[in-house]
Design a protein around this nucleic acid. Structure first.
Length: 598
RNA sequence: GGGGGCGUAGCUCAGUCGGUUAGAGCGUCGGCCUGUCACGCCGAAGGUCGCGGGUUCGAGUCCCGUCGCUCCCGCCA
């Protein structure tokens, strides 16, 4: 007999009755009846009830074993009597009558209970992550992650992509987030950087003629954490295609994403969620900012914001009319069925708006063919009708107004849209709603310096190419730059790249970079583009965020095996940590720590 | 760097207006129990109320500071 097991803890069925079996696993739970003892033995595959009574030589061993002790139990598989079958577990028709018991590894009293789905504090969970990972929910999430990644690999290869590895120790990139730096021992005073993404390498692979690249790529960014953003490191499905238009990129990745989401849409859910069918809706950035007030709209929320500036222009409501004369806009957020809400509901939203630093949240309620509410009287019948038409509302509905300079108005209307949608329970449930946000602006005005900056990736191809850069106001130029969004989560951003040095020099010149600067900072890529570069583009959906969505978890730590905390510390391994003076000397590093506060 | 929330037994939490000996569940330890499956019953141990200072006759509770965790803003080409 195998020293540890003949079957797993999830394997035995009624058909095994009578056969000898050996199981190894953790003591999941014990039910001690004094003269009769049940031990639920658990491994990766399942749970099997094992039983011994006082007469048995093994009774003492089982009785002494604390929860999470690792045991090897040998005995006979016995069919349970009809009344004692447990229909809740797959092995519930049988039990193991224990004849031999060996303790492989005893467990101390536990800092967190493995056999419970109780919520624990992050500190305990992360410090004892190996115990947390034994618990059913996280264990299943990590398995889901593995299966999702396997599915992605299969689908990408089927689409004709080739998987590559790219360097982890590489050069610091001047744009973007802060880099993680690694000091060089051999070259005093110099540093490697961990890649924020394999951006340059995948473009170089295109220039090298590999045509279709992908990688489940680790990315490192020294930025602060959020629920949907791990501090330090995360993974992307990084891909890039040669001779591809924006539509080619969409057509290549949509079936992969839709396929993966459909494959796992039933995970942990009563009924599989529906998934947007390709082609996914395309929303120009301008339109998204107007209609949703955000560049990552959650389309499960059906509310659509409308611009009603003209309706309020020149009215007696001087707060709006006056602001409009100074260039402000008015955005309307519909609240279908809002007339049924009590006055206090409107007051509460108003109060929330003021907490957000806004003047308030004006509103009109449509009842009996007319507008009601504090500011309704400023709109005549014609304008009220226009308002109803613009927002698509009818009697029984309400509408809220945000009046501000354009960007602020869009942003706050977006926040109000989310809040109103939630409070009215309008969100569609049981679905993954995808969309592309396209036509991002190439440049934006830096409000602090008044200077023109790149608004996203400086290596994106401007729409219209060199002619557009030469002829147009930079702030009107769009880039072949796109994001993919699912349920309000930004899964990725991507672009058709700028593969032409002449366009690149011009694009950087507009953002105030001299030719020499560009050549100094990006010589590798620029040089490569001087020897025949295929037009190319791609994207990089976040793996962790995809798994988070599929697992229906509110934060990334639930789908990462060994996450860091918000302060970018690994509590299990104790990282980051000081190093010996000797090692610092080897690296030619002397610490200059900030003064301790008194 | 900034703002909000939280911090009480190993763990999850309760703790009223500032007032007697700080409680519960789970876990741990001891006892009882031969068909449970979140077994049940009886009992016990276990507390720097995050830390420091202050107000008060009296502080888990109020105030100030500080540390930790978390959510958010900044940051994220």
């Amino acid at each position: 007999m195998h020293p540890y097991r003949t079957h797993t803890c999830g394997q035995l069925r009624a058909t095994h009755a009578g056969v000898p079996a050996r199981l190894s696993g953790w003591v999941h739970r014990k039910r001690d009846h004094g003269n009769l003892l049940f031990v639920d033995l658990r491994d990766h595959y399942g749970i099997t009830q094992c039983v011994a009574d006082t007469g048995s030589a093994v009774f003492g061993v089982l009785d002494d074993a604390k929860l999470e002790t690792v045991l090897t139990l040998t005995g006979k598989v016995v069919k349970r009597s009809a009344e004692t079958v447990n229909p809740n577990i797959p092995t519930g028709e049988v039990e193991l009558r224990v004849e031999e018991a060996k303790v492989e590894s005893a467990a101390d009293a536990l800092p967190l209970q493995v056999n419970s789905d109780m919520d624990y504090g992050e500190e305990v969970r992360l410090k004892y992550r190996f115990l947390d990972l034994r618990r059913e929910k996280v264990h299943r999430n990590i398995m889901l992650r593995s299966e999702v990644i396997a599915s992605i690999r299969r689908r990408m290869i089927e689409q004709g992509f080739t998987e590559f590895q790219t360097p982890i120790l590489t050069a610091s990139s001047p744009e973007g987030a802060r880099d993680y730096l690694v000091p060089s021992r051999v070259h005093p005073g110099t540093f490697y950087a961990l890649p924020q993404a394999p951006q340059m390498f995948k473009q170089l692979l295109m220039v090298s003629g590999f045509d279709r690249y992908f990688q489940i790529a680790p990315c490192f960014r020294d930025e602060d954490g959020r629920a949907d953003r791990s501090p330090g490191e995360f993974y992307q499905l990084d891909f890039e295609m040669s001779y591809a238009t924006q539509e080619d990129v969409f057509a290549a990745i949509e079936p992969v994403l839709a396929g993966v989401f459909e494959e796992f849409a039933g995970f942990n859910k009563d009924k599989p969620w529906t998934v947007t069918k390709p082609p996914f809706p395309r929303l120009p950035f301008e339109e998204a900012m107007l209609q949703y007030g955000i560049d990552k709209p959650d389309l499960r929320n059906p509310l659509v914001i409308a611009d009603v500036t003209e309706i309020w222009r020149g009215t007696g409501f001087k707060i709006f009319a006056g602001a409009i004369e100074k260039g402000a806009v008015v955005r309307a957020i519909p609240a279908p069925g809002g007339a049924a809400q009590p006055r206090s509901w409107y007051d509460k939203l108003n109060e929330w708006a003021r907490e957000q630093g806004q003047g308030g949240l004006g509103y009109i309620v449509f009842e009996a063919g007319a507008g009601k509410g504090p500011i309704a009287k400023f709109l005549d019948e014609a304008r009220t009708a226009q308002l109803k038409a613009a927002t698509g509302l009818k009697d029984g509905d309400a509408v809220f107004f945000v009046c501000n300079p354009k960007d602020q108005a869009a942003k706050f209307a977006g926040e109000a849209r989310i809040r109103i949608g939630r409070e009215l329970g309008l969100y569609e449930t049981g679905c993954f709603k995808f969309c592309w946000i396209i036509d991002f602006p190439m440049y934006e005005l830096n409000p602090d310096t008044g200077k023109i900056d790149f608004s996203h990736n400086p290596f994106s191809m401007p729409q219209g190419g060199l002619d557009a850069l030469d002829a147009n106001d930079p702030l009107t130029i769009k880039a072949f730059q796109y994001d993919i969004v699912c349920n309000g989560v930004e899964l990725s951003s991507g672009a058709i790249r700028n593969h032409r040095p002449d366009i690149m020099y011009k694009a950087f010149a507009i953002a105030g970079y001299a030719k020499e600067q560009l050549e100094a900072q990006f010589s590798g890529l620029l040089n490569a583009f001087k020897f025949g570069a295929p037009p190319h583009g791609g994207s990089a959906p976040g793996i962790d965020r995809m798994v988070m969505l599929l697992a229906n978890e509110p934060n990334l730590r639930e789908v990462v095996a060994f996450p860091m905390n918000q302060q970018a510390q690994d509590l299990l391994m104790g990282a980051p940590a000081p190093v010996d003076e000797k090692r610092l000397r080897e690296l030619h590093i002397r610490l200059a720590l900030p003064a301790k506060k008194a």
